[in-house]
């Protein structure tokens, strides 16, 4: 009842308010939809799209498909190391030349790795150059702390 009376008395301003609201809502919806659909997708899919178009692309010194550092010997590492395991296993590790050599030897003895031939030296040089051992000591300083306000 109340509503009907309200409508009768205010038909004109009411309809213009409706029209205005509709325009505003449509515009807002458009913006929200745009934000939801365009922005995150664009940022998220940039890397994968680039990988899809050029799997061997190198950006900021990083080989996008594998995550390996670009440098002489990287191709040999991809060829010999990544058929069985991901490059992520390589990238995590730090060893000196003797360490890498014994790791390769262990994989040949027990994990079906083939003879690397002349590439073995190239691979070891790449790994020790791009992923050098650094001294950490008995306890490192806490790193990469993401600070946030805590309400308890």
């Amino acid at each position: 009842m109340k509503n009907q009376q309200f409508k009768k008395r205010n038909t004109r301003p009411y309809s213009s308010i409706m029209l205005l609201s509709a325009i505003v809502i449509t515009a807002l919806l458009g913006i929200v939809t745009y934000l939801m659909m365009e922005t995150p997708e664009e940022t998220e899919s940039t890397v994968s799209t680039e990988i899809a178009t050029d799997p061997e692309r190198i950006e900021d010194g990083i080989h996008l498909r594998t995550g390996l550092k670009a440098g002489e010997g990287m191709d040999a590492v991809i060829r010999h190391c990544t058929p069985c395991h991901s490059a992520k296993l390589v990238i995590q590790n730090r060893m000196d030349a003797a360490g890498w050599e014994s790791t390769i030897h262990w994989m040949q003895e027990t994990q079906n790795l083939w003879d690397l031939g002349d590439d073995q030296e190239v691979v070891i040089q790449y790994l020790t150059r791009e992923y050098p051992v650094s001294t950490k000591g008995r306890r490192q300083v806490l790193k990469d702390i993401e600070w946030y306000s805590l309400e308890q």
């Binding site: 600070w147 306000s149 805590l150 308890q152």
Partner: peptide, 15 residues
Amino acid sequence: NPRSGAILEAGKNLR
């Protein structure tokens, strides 16, 4: 708990 990196207000205790 809490996650590392909490910033607390002075005078408050922390569980």
